[in-house]
Write a protein that binds this DNA or RNA. Structure first.
Lengths: 124, 124
DNA sequence: GACATCTCAGACAGAATGTCTGACACTGCC
DNA sequence: GGCAGTGTCAGACATTCTGTCTGAGATGTC
């Protein structure tokens, strides 16, 4: 029952590229993140992808010469994970206190308030 | 603008004791956390408190021989910090997406739903 | 004064993170 | 076939964070 490691800021940058551009190669990702492409930044991205793969956030297609990567989680999945981690840490795993806490201190526009009411009513 | 470090699980255990028992000494905290009191566990708690102090989570009263500690943040403040950290990381700092996200996937009892509606309506 | 208890400074190992180097494999072109 | 360009992979490396522990010295009690 080992706690899944958090996704790092650098790793998130890689995921961001992958969300915009699925099936990217390491070179493409590197060029998107670092302004100057170099063998070492290429290797850095390689290592980040390797770790993201270990965290089940990325899948690798080995069929071509240069491997192609895609994200296996969406941004909202990651949000879920993070919120669950907070809930585990501070609310015995329950998300409800988070929701109530946020509802009591977040300023909402009329628009958002309306949407939120709808969301609540739709849940059975 | 360095990002404030997260509170560790061990540090949280210390805060938990402090929330139950304000004005505690290191010895009291140590005895509450570790089953066997020892000089080394005492020193460990000392170090955790030192780090919590650096993170502005704990204040120290040096007037007596043995210092007394109290938490300077509540559990809900910590919850706030964590949620803000998630928002910074994934939602450009806005808490609203978190709220909407949670509202759309958290199961609520009728009781909770009622409370949540009230919370929303009370926000101006 | 003897002894327990405290604080404080710092050492220490293990893990996570970001970076980089070197060895080797594949591709395509001459 | 040979070679340059590009890939992968394994691993070294410094830094930081975390939890733990030791030793020196100050303060309290009897």
């Amino acid at each position: 029952m080992d706690k899944p490691r958090d996704v790092t800021d650098s790793e998130l940058a890689v995921l961001d590229v992958l969300w915009n551009q699925p099936q990217a190669t390491i070179r493409e990702i590197t060029e998107a993140i670092y302004e100057d492409y170099s063998p070492s930044s290429h290797a850095t991205v390689q290592k980040l992808l390797e770790r993201l793969e270990a965290k089940d956030c990325v899948a690798r297609d080995r069929s071509g010469f240069a491997h192609r990567f895609r994200a296996t989680i969406e941004r909202s999945d990651l949000l879920d994970r993070q919120l669950e981690a907070v809930a585990d840490k501070l609310c015995e795993g329950s998300l409800t206190p988070l929701l109530l806490h946020l509802a009591s201190r977040t300023k909402l526009s009329d628009e958002e308030r309306k949407l939120l009411r709808k969301l609540i009513n739709d849940r059975t």
